[in-house]
């Protein structure tokens, strides 16, 4: 049955679907508002799966250290894993230039006025950015703790950064974003001794208050401090993802923001 010719209307749901009253027709839809973005995201995810890589969406407020974390990660893993980076910014190619300086391919999406990446922007970028041979693709989203949370890009995992120079109540202020995390990274930990108002325990309490059970990893990318847990998590996810691909289960972010619509429809 399809949604085109009307063959999906049965005697059981007819009343629900069409209610012609004075030339008026009511149509029941029950679809996510971002259905088109989600379709495109599924297509992107399939593309990533075909290349047997893991795609990680990196999100945070501006200046939390996303690019610095990627640079430190490339330094640590670049000789063992092939890494690629797609950058999203309103303007400038600066971040892509920083990544390329590490000898890793990078593509810059310039969003203009858009405050987030969406699945279509990423898809256009994928046409210009070869994925062959990559193990890990980082998608560095636009620095913003609000809008990027609403748009599935087709990534397998979401990593959210919270720098210690921000407030430790950020998870309570931006619950939608922090609930989307598969891992939360407390960055710039080398500055903690200088900051008397950021309490890592309070940051964790605010995160756990969202019902979040994801790993919270504290590190300093600039000073290469305590990168171990982050690198272990990353490699663990890649290994797990490749194992899952073998058994043909598509990997998705743990906290699917649109899990409600998935509940009402068939889960993939």
């Amino acid at each position: 049955m399809c949604n085109t010719c009307g063959c999906n209307i049965t005697s059981g749901n007819r009343e629900f679907a069409y209610k012609p009253v004075n030339g008026m027709t009511a149509v029941s839809v029950l679809e996510n508002l971002l259905a088109r973005n989600d379709d495109q995201a599924r297509h992107n995810r399939h593309h990533f799966d075909k290349h047997d890589l893991i795609a990680i969406n990196v999100m945070s407020s501006p200046g939390a250290g996303k690019t610095a974390l990627l640079e430190a990660t490339i330094d640590a893993l670049g000789n063992r894993y092939r890494i690629g980076v797609i950058e999203g910014d309103l303007e400038t190619e600066n971040d892509a230039i920083r990544i390329r300086a590490k000898g890793v391919p990078a593509y810059q999406i310039i969003t203009g006025a858009a405050c987030h990446l969406d699945a279509h922007m990423l898809h256009n970028a994928l046409h210009e950015f070869p994925l062959e041979g990559l193990d890990i693709l980082f998608i560095e989203n636009v620095g913003n703790l609000v809008c990027p949370a609403s748009f599935d890009l087709g990534q397998h995992r979401n990593v959210i950064l919270l720098s210690v120079t921000e407030g430790d109540d950020k998870p309570a202020k931006y619950p939608v974003m922090f609930r989307a995390a598969d891992a939360v990274i407390l960055t710039k930990s080398d500055l903690l001794p200088m900051l008397d108002d950021f309490n890592p325990a309070r940051a964790e309490l605010n995160l756990r208050s969202l019902g979040s059970r994801v790993p919270l990893i504290t590190l300093s990318a600039r000073k290469s401090l305590d990168l171990g847990d982050w690198l272990d998590w990353l490699i663990g996810e890649l290994v797990q993802k490749r194992g899952k691909l073998a058994s043909d289960i598509p990997a998705q972010p743990v906290t699917d923001l649109r899990s409600i619509s998935s509940n009402t429809r068939m889960r993939e």
Binding site: G23, M24, T25, V27, S28, V29, L30, A35
Partner: peptide, 13 residues
Amino acid sequence: GEELTLMSVELIT
């Protein structure tokens, strides 16, 4: 609480 759903539309036919 996570819903962002288009429930139905009424059309003038």
